[in-house]
Amino acid sequence: MPDQKALLLPQKQGQFVVDNWPIPSPGHGEVLIKVQATALNPVDWKMRKVGFLIDKYPAVFGWDFSGDVEVVGEGVEGFEKGDRVTGMSYPARGNGTFQQYILMPARLVVKIPPSLNYVDAASMPVGYGTAALGLLAAPPLGAGLNPSCDFSVNHAGEAAFVFGGSSSVGQFAIQILRKMKYSPIITYASARHTEFLKSLGATHVIDRAATPTSSVPDTVRALAGGAAINIAYDAISEPDTQEACFSLLSQGGVAVAIQGGEDKDVGGRKLIHIVLEAHGDGEFGEGMWKSLGRQLEEGVIVPNRTEILPNGLAGIIDGLKRMEDNGVSGVKLVALPQETS
């Protein structure tokens, strides 16, 4: 195959550039996917700025994708050329999604139902995977609410809290908690997203402009009305937000954070931090993606609201800068690699 176009980072903490890049060939158990849409995540600009996760350069970043199966490798069953698929890649393994073609293990690829377009499908994997891992996976990977991902458990009468409900991860955390019958589901976000977040399952939205982080624990406990608060998901995960989530827990509760920090276990309450790489690894990862496939078919998981970036892969550069400058709220930025000139 001829070369493809990719958004490359030539060296650690360098500047992105669109350039030619070889198209890989699938090995045993792999599929080659023509990437139709790829979504941006905060970790992308942080990886470039801080220089973590990637050891080999030039490198291709990007985690979320949707597209078409182009070539099926040996030993792969259940997929054929032309299948519409989505999933989450892992750039440190050399298969970032900011390119026109990627290799993926077939066991971690999910078919897209006819009702879902490429852009919406690409908005989901990292956000859903991060929320599901933290909430559902057995310790030490997550809080252990539903390791089988079959959503047979029922937490009616228990309160849950999501810090940053309008973020991509926060939106999926709310939907997963709704599916497990938590009530009330309280979230902290901009008031302008109130109706949308309630449509996902939130029962109360605390306006971040009116309530400082330090007041969140008391506010949440008041809204919970005496219900036990056994789970809090921190989709922002700054030191003060992690402390707020930990402080509001009832005895035996778990707060989940998505970025660095120290785990703690004090007085029967826990704060845990999840690891992105654990998404696709092992029994839980495979079960999680199969569960997502079923939920997409049933239409019970709603994708993020999206904004399509212009200029294909080149548009990602400005999109990441907007994210770094806190210029994106309530939407997932998505690029279309095949539109790269």
Rank of each mutant, 00 (worst) to 15 (best):
D19M: 05
V76Y: 14
V72F: 03
S190P: 07
D234I: 00
G62S: 07
G319M: 02
I258F: 01
G27S: 07
L292E: 12
G225E: 12
M180Q: 15
K46E: 01
V169Q: 11
F151S: 14
A191V: 02
N154E: 10
Y57H: 06
A92G: 10
A227M: 11
G268T: 04
K34C: 13
G62I: 02
G96D: 01
P337N: 00
E283F: 08
G67L: 08
D325C: 04
N95C: 08
N154M: 08
A257P: 02
H204V: 07
L320F: 00
S237T: 09
T86M: 14
E30V: 00
E298W: 00
G293W: 03
E74L: 10
Q259G: 11
T213Y: 09
L296Y: 11
K332P: 04
I301W: 03
V334W: 01
F284V: 04
T38S: 09
T211N: 10
L32D: 09
N20D: 12
G170S: 10
P139L: 01
S168D: 05
D325H: 12
S66W: 01
S166I: 04
I308G: 08
A244C: 05
A173G: 14
S215M: 15
A6S: 12
D318Q: 12
L9D: 07
F172C: 11
G144C: 02
I316T: 02
A314W: 00
V220K: 02
N146V: 05
E30Y: 00
S89A: 13
F246E: 11
K46W: 01
M124N: 03
V216H: 09
A137E: 10
H204T: 10
E339M: 11
V216E: 06
V71R: 14
D281Q: 15
E298T: 09
L32T: 00
K49V: 02
A173W: 00
L336V: 02
D83R: 10
G82M: 10
S341D: 15
S199H: 06
I23G: 03
I112L: 06
G94L: 01
L116I: 06
H28Q: 14
P22M: 02
A159G: 14
I102D: 12
L333M: 04
D265S: 14
A121H: 05
H193G: 07
S291F: 12
P105Q: 11
P212H: 13
T194F: 07
A202E: 13
I33P: 13
S291D: 13
P212C: 13
L309T: 04
G287R: 15
D3Y: 10
D218H: 04
I33Q: 13
V50A: 12
P113L: 02
L249H: 05
P91A: 12
L313E: 03
I54E: 04
V110G: 11
V119F: 07
Q13M: 09
T97E: 01
V328L: 10
G165A: 08
